[in-house]
Design a protein around this nucleic acid. Structure first.
Lengths: 211, 211
DNA sequence: GTAGAATCGGACTGATCTGTCTTGTTTTTT
DNA sequence: AAAAAACAAGACAGATCAGTCCGATTCTAC
């Protein structure tokens, strides 16, 4: 579980975690190592030395690129979010048909994510859970990530001509978060399908069962 | 935010957090202090000395009652779960009418929980997020807590004569987890109401819109 | 009242933490 | 080839960490 390799579901060229991206220089190796350790063992529980060991770099190199551990954490969250969203929306962009199909496909893509052996939950949910009260950098990073998702969802809702765009978007967001947490705790990817059924049921109702 | 007082929503005699329970001895004070600090600042980030400061006890006293920090964490999770479930099911037991009312009331009680100024999310979700991979004690504590909830939910489903008890229970569980996470991140308690509407929609469908 | 448990106060250990610094080597860029 | 940036290796500092131990004191139950 703590071996050098981290098997990550690869889709056309990119994985969902930055920890599996190709490393070209010491900075990349540090970021990959930090991503893996932070996400699997916790942010506070991961020491700088453990990151250096895994990355195979010198301490001075790390502090040449990042002013502090906190800045490294922010950089990792940023990179994890970028990588994940590239993967996620890349998958969704392959879905054909009306907006309803894309929204429901969200849960199919989530299921693939959950099914990856290296799945550790959402880094942002985990980070907010760990730091929680009063950590601006982490909370803002999580908010930015969620904003990206909500913006995309809202666009789909408007394309579907849903009457209450905000409320329906909030509903789907709850289903996504709930599926992530349930899958993380149980290790059972099929929670994505349960969430999908809930979404179908809700969209049917909102759209007057017309699809 | 880090003052001595932690305002906690009190219902007939009990709050939802062990951190607000009356302390009779040093052990209780340690447990209360540890609960508050662990849940608000994280488990790994909270040092023993900080707990002692807040509890106003000596270090030897803590290690007289708990063999290690890990054991203290387990004890805190156990107590937090017990206290919360007492509060939660106590509230639900006051709901009149058929099982459907009780299931939907879950989200009303959740909203009260979310609205408390001291709300910090679910301690078990947060703990699993922080320790994650391979911490048996924490994961098992979280599983026991979730089992209690699922058992209760299942009983309601059977009373409602839902066709697929397991799947419907999973659906409500997703809605609960999703509402908790969404409320924790946004600070907006009304996510409970959104989740309630999803539950209504789903139950209507499952029960053939007969209520 | 007396025994035993609970508690206090704090010194202390050894490990680990983040972060700095120095010296020299490698790589890249111009 | 020369200049500049990136990097390695590790010593070092100062703080904090979990946990132990001791002696004195207070509380509690019989």
């Amino acid at each position: 579980m703590d071996d050098g390799l981290n098997e990550v579901c690869l889709d056309d060229g990119g994985g969902w975690s930055f920890a599996s991206m190709p490393a070209r220089n010491a900075r990349d190796r540090i970021m990959s190592a930090a991503s893996h350790l932070f996400c699997n063992h916790g942010f506070a529980a991961t020491g700088i030395d453990a990151i250096l060991d895994r990355a195979g770099t010198a301490k001075a190199t790390l502090y040449h690129h990042f002013r502090s551990k906190e800045e490294l954490i922010s950089a990792v969250l940023q990179a994890e979010g970028d990588t994940w969203r590239d993967w996620f929306f890349g998958r969704l962009s392959q879905v054909e048909g009306p907006a309803r199909n894309r929204v429901l496909a969200v849960f199919d893509v989530l299921e693939d994510w959950f099914a990856d052996p290296g799945f550790y939950g959402c880094p942002f949910i985990n980070a907010v859970a760990e730091f929680d009260t009063g950590n601006d950098a982490v909370r803002q990073a999580a908010e930015r990530h969620k904003d990206h998702l909500l913006t995309w969802l809202k666009a789909q809702m408007m394309e579907m001509k849903v009457s209450d765009v905000v409320e329906t978007t909030r509903s789907i967001a709850i289903l996504i978060d709930g599926a992530i947490v349930a899958a993380q705790h149980s290790g059972d990817p099929s929670f994505a399908r349960t969430a999908r059924r809930l979404a179908e049921c809700h969209l049917d109702t909102v759209l007057g069962r017309a699809g």
